[in-house]
Computed example of a mutant assay.
Amino acid sequence: MRNHADFLFCGIELGERIERAEAEFIAAGSAAALERVGDDGGFVIGLAGGFACHTEAGSPLNKVAGLGFAGVPAAGELDEVERRCAAVGAPVQVELAHLGAPEVAETLTARGYRLVGFENVLGRSLGDARAATVPPGIEVLRGDDTDFDRWADTVVGGFAVPDAQGVAPHEDFPRDVLERAVRDLAAAAGTRRYTALVDGEVAGGSSMRVTQGIAQLTGAATLPAHRRRGVQSALLAARLAEAAAQGCDLAVVTTQPASKSQQNAQRQGFSLLYTRAILVKP
């Protein structure tokens, strides 16, 4: 059992470091998506230390990320983002860390943004990461260019049927749009891909992005037929071991509150660092 000294404390500086990495990840994926779809009203705009992005209708990349650590966005900057979203018939969604300046949330709610949900950010130090251990019958393979399509199909297939444990997401995405977003993120941000096999059969997939000493654990999903067999724990352990070997000092993962993913992460030594509020202006 872990003692209290093992739990990672997240101050404002660490929160800013994680949010900057997340915002850059979303911006990179969005830029790749815009190269694919062309100039059809999409954008990637720097906004008060973060980014406002829109790619195509219904995409999970359509959001504002990274606010709260570089002052309050100017009214004119928010006007521009809201105008451009309105021009393509899209809401504005802001994911706002509760460690950021409270004035940002005050400004957004005064402009008509509504709270629609939360997501949790968990992290752990990698100084004591051990070699990956996986349950019997499960094998984790590092992906390459030859298995990209299989990996993408597996991850999207798992996302398409969300796990019922915990708080339900406030939105879902068409499978084709989700698949394109997964591919754009993987292609643009230099993510490393992993596939889990159960008794030789593809069961799940995940990815990891390494940036500035942070291992961002992303894109993890298990196909419904293989859930509750340790697939997510195996994928998590494999990525932690590789991140430590690459010299990362921190691993982070984002989950739905009280979800199976959060439970698996905490079993692997992750601590709840902070929560993002999801604010939407229709």
Rank of each mutant, 00 (worst) to 15 (best):
A28V: 02
L272D: 13
E119K: 12
V116D: 01
A277Q: 14
A48R: 04
Q268Y: 08
E82F: 05
P91E: 09
A33S: 11
D249I: 00
Q268I: 00
Q93S: 01
P257V: 01
G137P: 13
Q216F: 12
A86E: 08
G66M: 08
R175K: 12
E35A: 12
D249A: 14
L223N: 07
D199R: 14
G50W: 11
E56L: 12
D79V: 01
A86K: 06
L126K: 08
P257H: 05
D176E: 14
A164D: 13
K260R: 12
V210W: 15
A86S: 11
R20I: 01
V252Y: 07
A105Y: 04
A215L: 09
S30G: 14
V64T: 04
V104S: 08
Q246A: 15
A33W: 02
K281C: 03
G49C: 08
A243F: 07
G269C: 05
A196T: 04
N120Y: 11
P282Y: 02
V72P: 10
G46E: 15
L279Y: 14
A65H: 07
E56F: 12
Q246P: 01
M208A: 13
Q246E: 15
I26T: 11
Q263K: 07
D199Q: 13
V72R: 14
Q263G: 07
P136S: 14
L99Q: 10
E171Y: 05
P174M: 01
F118T: 04
D249H: 15
A70S: 13
E95C: 10
N62D: 11
A5I: 02
A101W: 03
L78P: 08
D144W: 10
P135A: 13
S207E: 13
L197V: 07
A31R: 15
V252Q: 10
G38Y: 01
V88R: 06
E106K: 04
V167Q: 15
G213C: 13
F25L: 05
C53D: 09
N264K: 02
E80S: 03
A189I: 01
H226Q: 06
L99F: 04
V253G: 12
N264V: 13
A152W: 05
T254H: 08
A33C: 07
G143Y: 08
A238G: 06
G11W: 07
E24C: 10
A110Q: 12
D176Y: 01
Y274P: 00
A33M: 10
F118W: 09
A48L: 03
P60Y: 10
L78R: 11
A70N: 11
